[in-house]
Design a protein around this nucleic acid. Structure first.
Length: 669
DNA sequence: CCTCCATATATTTTT
DNA sequence: TATATGGAGG
């Protein structure tokens, strides 16, 4: 454990009021938070069970918990809560579900569930499904801003918003009927609960006496309100954030919450952490210069004592192919020459689509790599199928899950049968599952079909019983064999190898569930909870990580790189329309793109390289590219340009300041 | 119910 | 240009 610097120490020791820590990139904010938790417990006599630390990702929460545990002895940390916002919300809803009108075992709808439900609603009610994505975003925005369906309808402007508001109210009713919540509800519902039931809020306030919030600049309106409600009056909290690393505004994050804090808590103390323990001086100089182009409320200037370091390179390439080739070759030679492991290198890009060529080039040169992001594990068919089975088991009202699994594998229940079942269920005001075995159904359907439906229901009923009385994991394993899921997968796979892989995912999921149940310290985790955790991606990433010891070049989007660090960083596609993304140029919101570039730069410990292509194939046609304006904003004396061979002789001679202008002039021709 | 061809469509995504 | 989705037809 390293010593804290005076500012960090101050942040740890200040407990007499609300505190905002503006922690620059690499300034050791996690140390501050973890040390502070230990301090609160060991020096201030606050019991761990009264402390709550919130993060945005499971990974951050896990890491934090591990580091705190290392600082504590024995049972000191018992009852400490370190969780994500969503997990905290989930726990609140679970404890108070009846007040909110949910039954135990409620489902959590992920993005794809939400989308399919919305398309369904729109098709049924409004004949047409154009812009389901847009409507989904609008609804999500409303929820993040704590706007309920009625209010949304009242304030909707234009036909699109009005339709969205109507769909919203319909959607919310349907979710309730399905006994389900979506991700946004995990925050919104607790806030509503606290607003409407002061007694319940008091109970939670008494439970949470000190609160710490990480990545505060990423909180949205409802998350902030949740924090505010919980800490009120007592105002015992520490929030840590960095306005310069706010890159999720498009997702509802409100970096202005940092300012808001000052107004809501006049006694707020602000501490800035500017010493960086990660990068060379030159990299930080670059980062500082770039970000100074953004308007600022608080001005930070990162510095470090890690030496000035190498020049920052900017490499111009003929096209996107040459760009990827160049990066691959550089990493290869650097790895061979200096014996540095591949995991020292990271390749960052703006959009996932850029990863493809890069991946190809790395493969050609047999360079191992790890790609994060892209199609998620949860997007896979077999995972969705299985998750739907799990969900239906703990929540029979989940029609979405029912529809997904009813014909997986084939049970000869076609669309006509389901339509009739659905009409009947709506009429009777019960779930599809419930309706499947009701006597009255036979008036609408022939015996053959009612038989098939009721057989399914009875099978699931029996399974549910086993899950709750017996060993649930064993029951689920048996289920997979019972329904001959492997055969179903085989039929739907292109090759035997693909089938094996997919069955691997199935057993992996079961394993994750098993571990979740076993690793629970309190030992009282139910399958409902375990399944909910699975939907929240919790307990899954953990296994993924320790599976493949992380050897290989790291490839990820700039967004995904936040919070990480690498000795050598390559940022590719430094071009107008890519790094300041086209739409952000159009909507005049390049500040966030600049922060994105800033995040990328500050990931690098020692070496930083930018690349860009002068020509690029896009949607079938070749287009000329202009180097990113952000390159212009960097201190030119610290940049070393390469790849200007094709440039006119005089340009070749004139490096530095005028180089970029010359390339521009040349590209114009 | 499944397969194939035409057509549209092209950011970032912690949960 | 590549990929995903949906409709038509077997």
């Amino acid at each position: 454990m390293s010593k804290l610097n005076p500012r960090q120490q101050e942040a740890v020791n200040y407990i007499s009021g609300p505190l905002l820590v503006l922690a620059g990139a690499g300034s050791g904010k996690t140390s501050v938070i973890t040390r502070k938790i230990a301090y609160l417990i060991q020096q201030c006599g606050i019991s761990a069970r009264h402390i709550v630390a919130v993060t945005f990702t499971n990974k951050a929460a896990r890491e934090m918990k591990e580091r705190v545990t290392a600082l504590l002895r024995g049972a000191e940390g018992h009852g400490l809560t370190v969780s994500t916002f969503h997990n905290l919300g989930l726990n609140i809803i679970r404890r108070e579900h009846s007040l909110l009108g949910y039954k135990p075992g409620f489902s959590i709808f992920d993005d794809s569930d939400v989308k399919s439900l919305l398309t369904d609603i729109m098709q049924k009610e409004y004949a047409g499904d154009d812009g389901a994505d847009e409507i989904k975003n609008l609804i999500s925005q409303w929820k993040n801003d704590l706007i309920l369906p009625d209010e949304a309808l009242a304030q909707a402007r234009g036909t699109k918003e009005q339709t969205a508001a109507i769909v919203y109210s319909h959607y919310q009713r349907t979710l309730k009927a399905y006994n389900a919540v979506d991700f946004d509800d995990l925050i919104l519902q607790p806030v509503k609960l606290f607003q409407n039931h002061p007694d319940v809020l008091d109970k939670w306030r008494n439970r949470i006496r000190y609160m710490l919030v990480d990545e505060y600049q990423d909180t949205n309106a409802s998350q902030y309100l949740l924090v505010k409600l919980l800490v009120k009056e007592r105002a015992q909290f520490t929030v840590v954030g960095d306005d310069d690393q706010s890159i999720y505004a498009w997702r509802g994050a409100r970096p202005e919450n940092l300012m808001q804090l000052k107004e809501d808590f006049p006694s707020l103390k602000v501490i800035m952490l500017e010493q960086n323990y990660r990068s060379t001086g030159r990299i930080l100089k670059c980062a500082n210069t770039l970000i100074s182009n953004n308007p600022h409320e608080f001005v930070k200037e990162l510095w470090s004592d890690m030496g000035f370091g190498d020049e920052i390179r900017v490499i111009r390439c003929r096209n996107e192919d040459a760009e990827a080739e160049r990066i691959a070759l550089e990493i290869l030679t650097e790895h061979l020459r200096s014996q540095r492991p591949y995991s020292d290198f990271a390749i960052l890009y703006r959009g996932n689509y850029q990863a493809k060529i890069m991946e190809l080039k790395l493969q050609v040169h047999k360079i191992p790599y790890r790609l994060s992001g892209g199609t998620s594990f949860f997007g896979r068919q077999e995972v969705k199928d299985l998750m739907s089975y799990f969900r239906l088991l703990v929540n029979p009202d989940d029609d979405n899950a029912f529809l997904r699994v009813i014909n997986v594998p084939r049970r000869e229940i076609g669309s006509t049968t389901l339509e009739k079942l659905s009409t009947y269920a709506t009429e009777r005001q019960v779930s599809l599952y419930e309706a499947s075995a009701e006597i009255g159904l036979s008036e609408h359907l022939g015996p053959r079909y009612t038989e098939r439906l009721s057989r399914f229901k009875h099978y699931m009923d029996k399974l549910r019983q086993r899950c709750f009385s017996d060993d649930p994991i064993l029951a689920l394993k048996d289920m997979i064999i019972d329904i001959d899921y492997e055969n179903w997968i085989r039929q739907n796979s292109s090759s035997e190898k693909a089938c094996e892989f997919r069955m691997g995912n199935v057993w992996f999921l079961i394993d994750a569930l098993k571990n979740t149940l076993e690793r629970d310290e309190a030992g009282d985790m139910t399958i409902e909870e375990a399944i909910a955790k699975l939907v929240l991606r919790d307990m899954l990433e953990r296994q993924e990580e320790d599976e493949d010891g992380a050897e290989g070049v790291q490839m990820m989007t700039l967004h995904a790189s936040k919070g990480l660090e690498f000795p050598s960083v390559y940022i590719m596609g430094m071009e107008e329309e890519i790094l300041p993304h086209r739409s952000s140029i159009e909507t005049d919101t390049i500040e966030e793109e600049r922060r994105l570039a800033y995040v990328g730069i500050t990931r690098a410990r020692r070496n930083l390289t930018f690349t860009f292509a002068s020509k690029r194939k896009q949607y079938g046609e070749t287009i000329e590219c202009t180097p990113s304006r952000f390159l212009d904003e960097l201190p030119s004396e610290d940049l070393q340009w390469e790849g200007l061979e094709e440039a006119p002789v005089e340009v070749k001679a004139a490096r530095g300041n005028s180089a970029l202008a010359d390339i521009r002039a040349m590209l114009k021709k």
